[in-house]
Amino acid sequence: MIKVHLKIKRFNPEKDKKPWWGEYDVEVEPTDRVLDAIHEVKWNIDGTLALRRSCAHGVCGSDAMRINGRNRLACHRLIRDEIQNGQITIEPLLGLRVIKDLIVDMEPFFAHYRSIMPYLVNDTDPGPRERLQSPEDRARFDDTTKCILCAACTTSCPSFWARGEYVGPAAIVQAHRFIFDSRDQGAAERLEVLGDSNGVWRCRTVFNCTEACPRGIEVTKAIGEVKQAIATGKVR
C-alpha cells in the first residue's frame, strides 16, 4: 500500500462562491485505479464528494475528468502511472458547466451528438436478411466505432472551449462512423450539418482530442477525413 495525496477541485454552486481544493490522504495499491482512490475519499472520508461513474471498467465513459491536467477516465488510469511526488490532481472537464464537484452538465455535449443523426439512415428494404457489407467496407469506419461518448476529446479541444456551439470532436467521430458506412444513405445531410460555421472547419488540428481519447481513436484523422469528404464531395 502507498499513501497518495489527492487534490480534488470541489464546487457546490448551492454553497460555494468559487471552486476550492479538497485535499485528502488515502492509502491504495499502486495497481489500483485513480477511481479507487476517489472511492476511498467518497466512501470513507467525505461522502459529499460528487462524481459520475457507472461500469468502472472503461466501457461506459461516465468518469472522464482531468487527472494531472489531462482528460482521462478515472477507471482507466492506474495510481502508479499518475502519481507525481506522492500527489494526484483531479479536476472536472473543461468547457462544460460544473453541476457539482466532478460532475459537469453533459447536455450541450449530447445535443451536438444528436445533431449529426447518430443512427443508420437507409429507407430501402433490406430484404429477408441483414444488410451485407464486405470486410473492407466495415474496416473503413472501424476506428470510429470505438467511441464511448465520454467527452474527453470534446472538452480537451480549444475550439470547443472558445465556442460551445462547435459540434466538437466526439460528434464528428460519431458522424464519421455513419458517413463512411457503405450501408448508410444519410451522408449528405450529415455533411451539411458538419459543413456549417460550427462544424468541422472550427477544428484547428491541435491533436488534444487524439491525445485525450481513452479508446485510442485517431480523432483528428477522422475529422480530417470528414473535412475532405465535405471539400471533395466523395465519401466512398
Partner: peptide
Amino acid sequence: KVIAQGARYRGGNPM
C-alpha cells in the same frame, strides 16, 4: 480565454 484554458490543460507539444 482559450489561451488561459490552454495554459491549464496539459495537452503536450502539439497543443
